[in-house]
Nucleic acid binder design. Sequence first.
DNA 1: GAAAGCATGTAAACCGTTACATGATTGG
DNA 2: CCAATCATGTAACGGTTTACATGCTTTC
Lengths: 185, 185
Amino acid sequence: MKENKTKYMILGLLNHQPMSGYDIKERVDHALSMFWNSGFGQIYPTLASLAEDGDIQLLKKESKAGPDRKVYQITEQGKVMLKKWLATPTEKEEVRYEMLLKLFFSSAIDPTDVIRNIESFQMKKQEEKIRLDMFCMELEKIMNESEDHRMYYLTARFGQKVYEAYLQWAQQAIDMLRENEEPML
Amino acid sequence: MKENKTKYMILGLLNHQPMSGYDIKERVDHALSMFWNSGFGQIYPTLASLAEDGDIQLLKKESKAGPDRKVYQITEQGKVMLKKWLATPTEKEEVRYEMLLKLFFSSAIDPTDVIRNIESFQMKKQEEKIRLDMFCMELEKIMNESEDHRMYYLTARFGQKVYEAYLQWAQQAIDMLRENEEPML
DNA sequence: GAAAGCATGTAAACCGTTACATGATTGG
DNA sequence: CCAATCATGTAACGGTTTACATGCTTTC
């Protein structure tokens, strides 16, 4: 069976502080977006099922604009579940790179198109890396202040390292393909 | 809408040579496993729908052991579709790292458990990297023989670079956590 | 004779995305 | 007054995984 990891993402965030579904979405998009994503269509139903199972509970309802803002809190039961998951090593991490799938079959298309695809990849990663670098620098200053910050730093650092690898590879790949395309030098 | 990429994976493989569903599974597991995965439960229905749409066609049925071995071939229509996809840059590549999600929340557990999790990650990646390195070396020798080999080399090289980043990060992370755990030196 | 590998497929369950529906408040 | 933001949710669809069902051949 495939465990629902969205459940643990919510538990992890609520373990830090009580939040609403809307808050959770914001945190995912801002703090976790480099390695995780989730939509409202997943968050709200998961919140409901976690509450039903007693892993979280409604702390309060606030009303400011539109529907009630429902703030949830993690329960002791939820904390136990979260910690159990956290302490278990991830066994298989299956990633899928559509870009590599394309590249693998790209002998069927024009080399200039292949180069364009890699350049597109390169540009996107370059942009994202700027944000990552800034994030890393900020976290480096404060990482000794708490265990939280130290963990955030480690995840940001992971991204930084991997993105560096992306960019190095992309440049080498482009150079190699270009060299091969125009060997009249 | 979310495009069915499994379709293109099959088309890409069949563009190289006619194959059965069983063959496709084998190729995915051996040649693409570093960046793609697929099960029979996906391959057979996709094969059926591609044949229905006229993107592939049944070349022959062979009988050796058990059910007929159904070998499929890509059609001209399928080739057009494949090439169109290949020439389009991938816009957003969303990866999910369960390991990083855990790490992000790991201030809630014992640092020794965090270290153990990272070590588990490190060991798995080390093992896989050995295979990648061998693969890269073999491909480097023959990559000038055909455009196919050149593309295979580039994908293997991508894996190599990224795995190097994984391992460097893991060692630094472990060192940092250990240093912090036992500061009495 | 049992186990592993060859070979195809279906059905159920689950995960995840997208679109839709609703509606109040705030800022330009 | 219109757009953006806050805020919650449902429904439909599509992708993916897992389990199940079948049965032959080869190897130990």
